[in-house]
Amino acid sequence: MLQHHFFNMGQQLEASVLGMWVFLVTEVMFFGGLFMAYILYRSMYPDAWLAGSHELNEMLGGINTVVLIFSSLTMALAVRAAQVGSWMGQVVNLILTIIFGTIFLVVKYFEYAAKFEHHLVPGPYFDPARDPAQQLYFSLYFMMTGIHALHMVVGIVLMLIILRMAWKGRFSAEYYGPVEVSGLYWHFVDIVWIFLFPLLYLIGKHH
């Protein structure tokens, strides 16, 4: 369990946790470029943003927000279960996390399908009756939620690997770094959605 180049378990855990945080900083900056474009274009074309946002399904977005919060809870509980050495706790919570993540992606699939039907995908098939500036909104919508969904897919694969390790009883109070580190990633993906939900779905609902 202790890799050859570390001197002790404490150093190994600290290194991997710091490593994940540094990685998450790069993720923040990665999404940051998209948010930058969002801020600029929303300030330039507030009406296109309003109109674009009205096409999103607030209910589905809300359900997905709740689903992700549930998954974050089970993720946190899975890490805790590893810390206290509970096999059952790890396995149950990891499976729940994977299920919630999958529900999120299924909901997202139906949302995307609706956008294709309504000619809201930017490019040559975009509804010509709409203000062209809405293409900016939908381009950013697809890039932001698409890259987020890709991160969810990566997260689910990661969780399957962790689940397999947990199933074999690899984790204990002394060694739980991989669960903790993957958990950090999962929570980060949740945080991105916490911002995407109000910024994309909840614009101008009072109209």
């Binding site: 993720e27 470029g33 998209l34 474009a37 930017p122 293409q135 381009s139 890039m143």
Partner: peptide, 21 residues
């Protein structure tokens, strides 16, 4: 580096998918 990565990705999305950024 992540900022230029996403920027290049957006250019790619414009070219390959017809997105408009």
């Amino acid at each position: 580096t992540p900022v230029v990565a996403i920027t290049i990705l957006l250019v790619g999305a414009e070219r390959a998918l017809g997105f408009a950024i």
